[in-house]
Design a binder for these strands. Structure first.
Lengths: 268, 268
DNA sequence: CAGTTGTCTTCCATTGGTCGGCATTGTGCC
DNA sequence: GGCACAATGCCGACCAATGGAAGACAACTG
């Protein structure tokens, strides 16, 4: 029962049954970019999104005109600065960073390594900001990137203070430490989370690119719920968790206080 | 020749002659947000973009689903974290910040005020990053926000090293210092720009929220063109431009060097 | 150097996703 | 209760969006 498709009857502009909403396709184009591929040619864009080249070109043209995409001399596309400008208004990054940066600066000055701030987004942590000193150890994750909840200091804090239904959902899955690929026992993780809740502090060690230890603490908003996690990342050898703990907790409290009275985004 | 529109013939879904491309409308929704209005209700969104409420709702729904928008418990929309995540891949912010942040941290530690990094976007400077210490003086501009080229330290640097055709375009307009609203003589500005090119350094004073001085230097990419400007912002009273100048220039050179060898984004 | 391959772009007949007015419900204020 | 405003659901006409075909151009290849 193949339908009639003799060469002569084949129409030119037959619109195929496919047909995602236009907006979704345009967003798919934006989503095709990736930290490992910040520049994409038209055909790469087309392949990654499954959108035919001619359609991809038309849509990309619109995005280009507005500034959501830019196009280099070699014809390749990248995310546009105009989009970044608008996106920087997202409250969970903008408000938070504004308050947190000075405190993060203090911590960096003391530790001279990495200081990072992350929020939860879906089943991962999203790094909102990172300060890194010159001689700092190699870091696994980057600002704007995602980090596993169960295998990073900030992630553990965010998980420990999430709703318990969400915690159970995560605990139900088989989890592996990253990047070592060592299985995590759900019972051990449960115990760790309880400790974090008790101490208001997470200490996480990993040996991957180099042995490091991360000390993380929760940041609360005016309603008292945990909206972010702050952490310092130092090489394991000269780590002094005893000293780092109070410093991180103090900074996190400072940020929390800064978020408090600044409430009420009612029309100014 | 009014067309027939007797009450009974009035069709329901008559599509009006209006009709911007869908993608443009969706982007207009994103563009409706603003640093002074990071939260918008549906009707505000509709009014600001000129899109009828029912259409705005439908489009916003799509954006919401993808994560380009978020919606609070009160029903108001804001920019979504997913959009920020993608937007953070824009080379002009991502690559630059990665290299610049450690150097900016050094400068902040010395000055204990504001350190900022900006790129040129159209006829304005766009602040890509700012580090601010605790006791720092009030700042006029915010990260992600735009600054006038002729009335800020970083702006002057970016203007001074822009193509001359662009400079003439700017010089041809009547310019005012911000926020004092004092006219800028085009001849004086021309002289200032020449000095900046000669010294590789801009010094800019303003008295607005408080008397401050900004010392700015250019950042070059591997090809030698100026891609950003770095600046420190300190209160005028205890400013030591003599000392700040070399510090800022050194840091800017460090960033430029960091951008150099990191060239060639050819497929890895 | 003709042949091959791949990318980018323009063209265009077709059609299904998009359109906004209207109706309804929800919410706050006097 | 009455009024004003915001949000959402509904609907069918219609035009903007569609993707295959084909051309232009560049880079390899035998």
């Amino acid at each position: 029962m193949t339908d009639d498709d003799s060469p002569t009857t084949r129409v030119r502009g037959r619109r195929p049954p496919q047909g995602d909403p236009v907006v979704d396709r345009a967003l798919a184009l934006l989503g095709a970019f990736d930290s490992s591929r910040p520049y994409l040619s038209l055909s790469e864009l087309s392949r990654r999104t499954g959108i035919p080249a001619s359609s991809a070109l038309r849509l990309a043209g619109r995005l280009l005109e507005w500034g959501a995409l830019e196009r280099g001399a070699d014809g390749r596309f990248s995310i546009g600065l105009r989009l970044w400008e608008v996106a920087s208004l997202t409250p969970r990054s903008h408000e938070l960073r504004q308050v947190a940066l000075p405190f993060m600066g203090d911590l960096e000055e003391v530790t001279r390594q990495h200081v990072l701030l992350a929020v939860r987004e879906g089943e991962e942590a999203l790094m909102v900001e990172r300060l890194s000193s010159h001689g700092a150890v190699a870091a696994l994750y980057r600002p704007g990137g995602r980090m596993p909840l169960h295998s990073t200091g900030v992630g553990l804090v965010l998980l420990a203070f999430a709703e318990s239904s969400f915690q159970e959902e995560v605990l139900a899955q088989p989890l592996m430490h990253q990047p070592e690929k060592v299985p995590v026992s759900s019972a051990a993780l449960r115990r760790t989370l309880a400790e974090i809740r008790r101490d208001g502090l997470a200490t996480f060690r990993r040996g991957a690119p180099g042995p490091i230890v991360s000390v993380a603490a929760p940041v609360h908003d005016a309603q008292g719920s945990v909206v972010a996690a702050l952490s310092v990342l130092v090489p394991a050898e000269n780590a002094e968790p005893r000293l780092l703990g109070p410093a991180v907790r103090t900074a996190a409290r400072g940020i929390s206080r800064g978020l408090g009275p600044w409430r009420a985004p009612g029309t100014p």
